[in-house]
Design a protein around this nucleic acid. Structure first.
Lengths: 210, 210
DNA sequence: TAGATTGTTAATCGATTAACAATC
DNA sequence: TAGATTGTTAATCGATTAACAATC
């Protein structure tokens, strides 16, 4: 399955859920693509990698396609997620309902700050960072969300990987080095803004006359 | 400039800042690539689009390259950023120091909740959502960060665009429709986790025997 | 000069797009 | 059957990689 396709599947899943909520039983590549913000050709091509069973002349069964994508993404089993770094951002993410809604269980919170350890956030007691391996083992977490300061991100990541985590979503700026069997996704807010600045640049810095 | 290159420039900038902090005056494509997590061939290729002036046999002048990338990304002028949606996540982002550190000015906060409007967050007074156009005009914001509930994201986005915003960074799940002159970057935490789940999937759901 | 390292070229690879035959 | 819509094919496009000539 092409990586670019995998990266779009969550968007299709969401679009399907919106379609299902509207009560529709069937949908078309045209409608679904519009909702997901891609072309219908792209959508059909992507779904073809799933060995999808739409019906020519008819369209896709909403619930069936939803299940197909859910299985393909590996969301049939609930994945256990550990969050490391309960600062402002970590706190916000821990309380983010979308995580549980979309098939994940937040099973642990870890922080290095003694003032934070022991407090309850999102129904979980924050555990100390010096027992990272223990927390991973006890919770069975396979995915970690990293919201630590950039300076410690690599070290924490190394410990997580050593403890058995195979997927890391990091919000710390800077590249993380991991072994080949581990998957890293990086969200860097400042980088995103800088990319937007690039496009803004061409349009003049003054805000423009209307 | 290829989009893929633009998307990597912020990473190079950050790598250069780390290099500068270490006191080095010169660097090589090899070293910089290692820091940025790409190959040296990729880095040189990317920099070639800047018309970069490294010196063969010598390397790159750290400060000079830093300025080149800063100019290329349009970061010579400070971009004004407006944040809409001061919930958990919006609050965290408003207080995120990295935004100011990396060349942006947070110039306004907006929320629809009367209980939040009027409070001070990150040194700014939260303004009411019904005056979105006015806030954009007064602040001269060209970039907006969207941390509203998904249900209102499209409507808020439309208003921002109508008011003159040309770049939107959205954290709300779901595709945003915008006119061609507007640039959207989307961060979807749940989608990122689902992509990680895909890779986790292949490795078995049990946590694995060690 | 000899060693190092860039900038560029050419080859490869993967992703997107458009068109249409298959088929419901 | 006629109309609709998929799944697939082939063409295009863009991005990555590897190698090396240029040159400091």
């Amino acid at each position: 399955m092409p990586p670019a396709t995998v990266a779009r599947l969550p968007g299709y899943l969401r679009a399907l859920e919106a379609t299902a909520a509207s009560g529709a039983v069937l949908t078309s590549s045209e409608e679904l693509a519009r909702r997901a913000g891609v072309t219908s050709a792209q959508l059909r091509k992507d779904l073809s990698h799933l060995g999808s069973y739409g019906r020519r002349g008819v369209g896709y069964d909403v619930q069936h396609l939803r299940e197909q994508i859910t299985v393909a993404l590996g969301l049939s089993d609930v994945r256990r997620v550990l969050l490391v770094g309960v600062g402002n951002l970590g706190h916000a993410l821990a309380n983010y309902a979308g995580i549980a809604e979309r098939g994940f269980a937040l099973v642990g919170l870890v922080d290095a700050d003694p003032a934070v350890v022991g407090t309850t956030v999102a129904g979980l007691v924050v555990e100390p960072a010096d027992d990272l391996a223990g927390v991973v083992a006890r919770t069975g977490a396979t995915i970690a969300v990293l919201t630590t300061p950039a300076e410690v991100a690599q070290r924490v990541c190394d410990e997580l990987v050593a403890a058995g985590v195979v997927g890391v979503l990091t919000f710390a700026p800077g590249a993380l080095r991991v072994p080949p069997h581990v998957d890293v996704r990086a969200v860097d807010v400042a980088s995103e803004l800088q990319i937007l600045a690039f496009h803004d640049r061409a349009r003049g810095a003054g805000g423009g006359a209307s």
